[in-house]
Write a protein that binds this DNA or RNA. Sequence first.
DNA 1: TGATTAAACTAATATCATTAGTTAAAATAA
DNA 2: TTATTTTAACTAATGATATTAGTTTAATCA
Lengths: 189, 189
Amino acid sequence: MSPRPKIALDKNQIIQAATELANEQGSENVTLALLAKKLNIKPPSLYNHFEGLPGIKRELAIHSLEKLYNNLAGAAKGKSPGDEAVLGLSHAYLSFARNNPGLYEFALSAPDPADGTVHHYGEKIVNLVLAAILPFGLQQDEAIHAVRGLRSLMHGFASLEKKGGFGMPLNLDESYVLAVKSFIRGLQK
Amino acid sequence: MSPRPKIALDKNQIIQAATELANEQGSENVTLALLAKKLNIKPPSLYNHFEGLPGIKRELAIHSLEKLYNNLAGAAKGKSPGDEAVLGLSHAYLSFARNNPGLYEFALSAPDPADGTVHHYGEKIVNLVLAAILPFGLQQDEAIHAVRGLRSLMHGFASLEKKGGFGMPLNLDESYVLAVKSFIRGLQK
DNA sequence: TGATTAAACTAATATCATTAGTTAAAATAA
DNA sequence: TTATTTTAACTAATGATATTAGTTTAATCA
């Protein structure tokens, strides 16, 4: 056993471990100490790969947005624009948030609001939703307003559900689908 | 100057200071160190009043919910149930989140999901919204679903707006009002 | 082979929350 | 008034955290 084994981690492995840490222990437990322990290295070694904890969190934000976008794009694929696509997108959005509870939080952390990569994925997601609501025949501005509303609905539901904000013993999936349907019905009439 | 002056703080003063700290510096800067500095005492002294940082955060959650409820109740008062009341509630909700950016986050922190006081205020807010949508003539379960949707929309918008999640240069108030109107229009079919 | 680079390390510092035990002021009881 | 109790501050110490600086070894490359 060499006295100082070279593990040779790369960025991807570290972000992968950080993602697991976030999803298993919660986003607030993504610390250099816990991450280093998971990787069997010492905390300062992480500075060889990232600019401290903020650097890792920024990468997590990008990784989360990328994964979210891919899930959304996969859900939209093949579905005809309009109600079907919107319902597919909304289902994929909530599924992503539920399946990646820790990682999802980083998708909205926006370390630097002017971050280029973050902004890029944000735009791609907006375009995906814009394409889905195309058949509703909204004007330029109205379409953007509609996308904002839909995002608010999806994120708000995911966020409140995760925080246990819905007390009543009533099916959650049903609430979600009904809310999305109400919203797009209101858009169209 | 006495060697150990007795400041004699009470819970309310501390929570008030913590609220200011949250709103001025962000909820993540509500630390015992900063709070003690603001109050001109040493951090351990805070343990004479609260059970550590978690205890203070729990009080902030209750304080936030209480204040939010009062704002919502004030907005609903005098307005006729239906569209007018719902629009009033939604406006009050977003205003509260905007005017109390740090405190608002504690309203949804739910330290213990089974916390009695937190649950109590949650129910009161739900009832307020239920009363506002009464004229829409929804059945028992549909009404609960609708409240969940409305809360999701309001919280989601407030949350995304605060995080700078809306990139496009388009009026935010307009987006919000349009989203709420679309949703309630869809509810009424 | 020898030099360079990459990626681990140790050691040290500063800031947290927290606990234990102390002290003085204020409130209360005798 | 005087004595006791309680309140609310304190100091000191501990352990976890991120971070910086400087070191060392293994891998890579000229």
